[in-house]
Structures are given as structure tokens and as C-alpha cells.
Simulated scan of single mutants.
Amino acid sequence: MKPTIRDVAKLAGVSISTVSRVMNAPDSVVESKRVKVLQAIERLQYQPNAFARGLIYKKSHTLGVLIPDIRNPYYAGVIRGMEDAAKSLGYSIIICNTDRDKERLISYLENCNEKQVDGILFTSETVYPDYYAEIRRFRLPVVLVSTHSLEYELPSVKINDEAAAYDAVSYLIGLGHRRIGMISLPLSDPIAGLPRYQGYMRALREHGLPHEGGQVIYAEHWYDEARSAAGRLFGQHPQTTAVFAASDEFAMGVLSFLHERGIRVPDEVSVVGFDNIRMSEMTIPQLTTMAQPVYELGYKGVEKLHRLIEHGSVTPLREYLPHSLIVRSSAAPGKGTQ
């Protein structure tokens, strides 16, 4: 059986914490005890693991990452940023796919607590009261990534979704489009649904365009649902000349629908997405989109969590990173403006 830190402590006649200090801060241990511990380690051929090294500091050097749906390509860039930052700061990460299920998410919080993670990166979901209650119960340091909470004092890093949607729709208006539809996430989604809808509506309103919301069709999170939503949009509003999609995956569903109907993009209809996932430049035509700095969001989230773990607080509490429009070939001037 592989020797443990307890075996070393027993053989050396010292406490587990003394063994940990020898491994982590040897100068803090008197020489006589240090020699006994080193001799015991050599005799037992003990190989300390990360958990044993961290016992004295009550740290596992592990972070838990709660992801709503690992299939969503948006999270690839976020997780890559998290992993790079974690590695540079000496952490490992555990990825937990919650599948947008409350019971599953709460069970993962319990698992992370049992595994003694040092902190949690909570991504892209609403912080409901029962989630917050568990976070408080376990006293886990938490940073929100691509989401935020105005109700609870939890550190966060994200973009301003309302402003980004406003800029995307304003770009289409600047190209001369006046009949602009939207494929939106449900308004019950306060993170990406409601604020992106509000940005779309504000752009129409401020540019003097009809803004009663009749050209908004709702879908859940997937490509197939967005393609179906595009069918409803053009069935109800056949004169639509541009579509703002609340995600790049939604935009791909729109492109697929238009291609099947023989409607040329961008000659007849322009399409703008949101996120700038890697596949957005692989579509035909390449997708114009409002980019989130996904890698930076993940990287900064880990940095923020590290500061919270080390110091107990961070500033600013709610941090917003800049968004940017990536102009490719799926959007062009509206009819009559060329």
C-alpha cells in the first residue's frame, strides 16, 4: 500500500502538520524534527500529493468550474482561459456540467465542498436564492463569469450585454436596414435573454424604427430551435432584411434556414450574431458578430478568484470587459442603400 502523510508522521513521531511544514516551509521546523521527517520520507519512499502538501494551509489548489452545458462551443474559449490562468497560479480545475438543472448544480456545490476546492467559478447562470444559500453555507469563495448578480455581493466579470446588443443592431441600422428581426433567448433569462433584447429594442427606438417587439422570435439555446424560429420570423415578416441573433449558434441556424430557402446572404438578408465563437469564421458566408472576449473572461475570472481566496475581497466587485464588432461577410448594406 502506498505510504501516506500519516505514516510519515507516525514513523517520525511528529504531527501531520509538522510533516506538512517540512514539505512546504522547512525553515519553520526545528532541525531535529526536520531530520526525523526527512529520514521517514526516505525510508518510506513517500511521494507527497497536492492534498498532503496543502493540509497545513487548508488548501487543495483546486478550483471548481460550474458550466451550464459543456456542448455549447462558447465555453471552449472560456475554459481555455481558465485553464491557462489556473496553471500559471498553481491551481487545477474540476469542470462540472450542470445541464441547467438546479438539483444537479446544488449537488455539484456539495461535491466541490467535500473535495475541499479553494473556490468556485460560476458561469453564465442566474444566482438563485437557493444557490446563494448553499454558497454561504459552505463558505466557498465564488466568482461569477459571464454572469453577475445585482442582488448578492458576489464578484463577477462579464460584458455589458445590453450595450453589445445595441451596438450590433445599430450597425445594421447604419447599413440602411429598417426591417430588422431578432432571434432571442427567452426573456426569463436575465443574463443573455433580457439584456440583449433590451439592447435590440433600444437601438430601434433611438433610431426611430418600429419597436413594438413584433419582429422578435424566441428560442432556447440550440441551433435547431433557432432554425425553426427563423422560419417563424420570415413567415410572419417576409420583408425582413436583417436578423440579429442572440448567439452565434442562433445565427448559424438562421443561415441554414435562409440557405434552404434559397435566400442569399448578405445580398437579400444580412445576419449578425453574438459571441464570436471559433466556428463563426467557418460559416459560409463568414459571420459578422459581436465578440465577447471569451478567453479573457475565463482568465480574469480565475485571477479574480485567486485574489478573493488570498485576500478575502476584490475590487472592482463587478467588472465589465469591452465587447467589439467583428465585421465579416454576412452583413451588407440594405436594399436601396447601395
Score class of each variant (00 low, 15 high):
V265E: 00
R264C: 11
V169W: 13
E268A: 02
N113S: 14
G301H: 12
V14H: 08
H61N: 13
F138S: 05
T283Y: 07
I5R: 03
P238Y: 15
H148T: 14
P48Q: 07
V8S: 01
Y166M: 06
Q45E: 14
P195N: 09
I277S: 02
M1V: 15
A245H: 04
N72K: 12
N160F: 06
I159L: 12
L172R: 03
D267T: 01
Q292T: 03
V14E: 13
S228W: 08
S146I: 03
S329N: 12
R328I: 00
E206A: 09
L55E: 08
V243Y: 00
T241R: 02
I159T: 14
C96K: 01
L38S: 03
V314L: 06
Y57N: 15
Q198W: 09
G298S: 11
E225H: 05
T126L: 07
G213H: 10
D69Q: 09
L187M: 13
A168T: 06
P155V: 09
K300F: 11
M182E: 03
M82C: 11
L287W: 00
I284E: 01
I135H: 07
G312R: 10
P190A: 04
V145F: 11
R21I: 08
L11D: 10
Y223I: 13
G181N: 07
I284P: 00
G334Q: 02
A246I: 02
R232A: 12
G13C: 11
D248A: 02
H177E: 10
T98G: 15
P238C: 14
K58Y: 05
R179A: 05
D118T: 05
V254L: 00
Y91C: 06
I173H: 00
F51P: 03
P73E: 05
Q39D: 12
L63V: 02
R179F: 01
I93S: 04
L297K: 04
Q292E: 12
Q39R: 12
I106S: 02
I159F: 06
M252P: 00
N160S: 10
A219M: 10
T337S: 05
L187H: 12
E249M: 05
A246Y: 02
R202F: 13
H311G: 07
D7S: 08
G273Y: 04
T288W: 00
M201H: 02
S28F: 12
E31N: 09
E83L: 09
S330V: 06
